[in-house]
């Protein structure tokens, strides 16, 4: 079985217990406007072009069989609708400015990478984390990886939006030791406005998880995006919701950051929050105390 992989990163310490290898899968059902990994959203390979690395040598222009790369006002521009992702320009690029993201891999390929750090998992209690994008967009593939990891004694973790049908989610959860799930906003309308989808399915799924997997450690991640998700009302409602789910649920606050902005440019996509600044640390601390007053444990990384 094959899946589409964005990237595999080793020695991660913020995505579950211990030292972990994070497998980023391509494809996500949501389109959060603050998303920091836009290259993970689509379920197909894409060409990225980082202009700050480009030395404007023009080798890519000559290499393109479709003549889809042109020089305009001293800038290299790719006519994306002409591009067939043949990769010829990437091969010729000297500076690493051009790159195709999204690589087909078999479950075995993924496992081979994951197993490289076994010695670190056993010394730290770590393992594999499936992230993305969202593993829920490739449920069969994800479940197969998780199953194989579990057979080999590798601790498993997934990071998902939980937007999808319960069947798909349950397939993965059957082989999952640790779960991260997001609640971006408690209000279904605002959720739809900011992410493109209503949150009804998500909340329903989370409730189901609390019933079906009462022992699964779950961290509910809440992005703190100033002016979008960080109002007290939203935070209070999320805290209330999570407090009713069980002792195995915690909340992690993820302060908005801008580290993904250049990826939008690389994909020739607009970034809508260009002027938004990260929330002050004090604000996060206030929210943390506020949530804790509802009896929910809060993690900050």
């Amino acid at each position: 079985m094959k899946g589409l992989i964005l990237n595999i990163e080793r020695f991660s310490i913020h995505d579950g217990p211990g030292i972990r290898t994070v497998v980023f899968l391509k494809g996500c059902p949501l389109r959060c406007i603050w998303c920091s990994t836009p290259d993970g959203q689509n379920m197909f390979p894409e060409l990225e072009y980082f202009s700050h690395k480009c030395i404007k040598c023009g080798r890519c222009i000559d290499a393109c069989p479709k003549k889809a790369i042109v020089k305009l006002n001293d800038e290299i521009v790719t006519l994306r609708y002409e591009c067939t992702l043949c990769g010829k320009c990437v091969e010729k690029c000297l500076s690493g400015a051009r790159k195709i993201v999204g690589k087909e891999m078999t479950v075995e390929d993924v496992l081979k990478e994951v197993e490289k750090d076994m010695v670190f998992y056993s010394s730290s209690g770590g393992g594999v984390t499936l992230s993305g994008g969202d593993p829920i967009s490739q449920p069969e593939f994800s479940a197969a990886i998780l199953k194989m990891c579990r057979e080999r004694g590798i601790n498993t973790c997934i990071e998902t939006s939980a937007y999808g049908d319960w069947g798909s989610l349950a397939k993965m959860l059957a082989y999952t030791d640790f779960l991260y799930v997001d609640i971006k906003h408690i209000d279904p309308l605002k959720h739809k406005k900011f992410t493109g989808k209503s949150n009804r399915k998500i909340l329903k799924n989370i409730e189901n998880i609390s019933k079906s997997y009462p022992d699964m450690p779950v961290v509910v991640r809440v992005p703190v995006v100033p002016g979008y998700t960080d109002d007290m009302e939203n935070i209070r409602a999320i805290a209330l919701f999570v407090s009713g789910l069980g002792k195995n649920f915690k909340i992690e606050l993820l302060p908005y950051h801008r580290l993904g902005i250049h990826r939008y440019e690389a994909l020739s996509r607009p970034y809508l929050l260009r002027d938004l600044m990260p929330p002050p640390h004090e604000h996060i601390k206030t929210l943390k105390r506020f949530i804790e007053s509802y009896g929910v444990k809060v993690i900050m990384s």
Partner: peptide, 22 residues
């Protein structure tokens, strides 16, 4: 930044144990 959190220090300890194992 590895050393800024307790988790980071724990990870460093685990990393060094794996180093010894290797």
């Amino acid at each position: 930044s590895l050393f800024r959190s307790e988790k980071g220090i724990q990870s460093f300890v685990s990393f060094m144990k794996a180093w010894a194992d290797l």
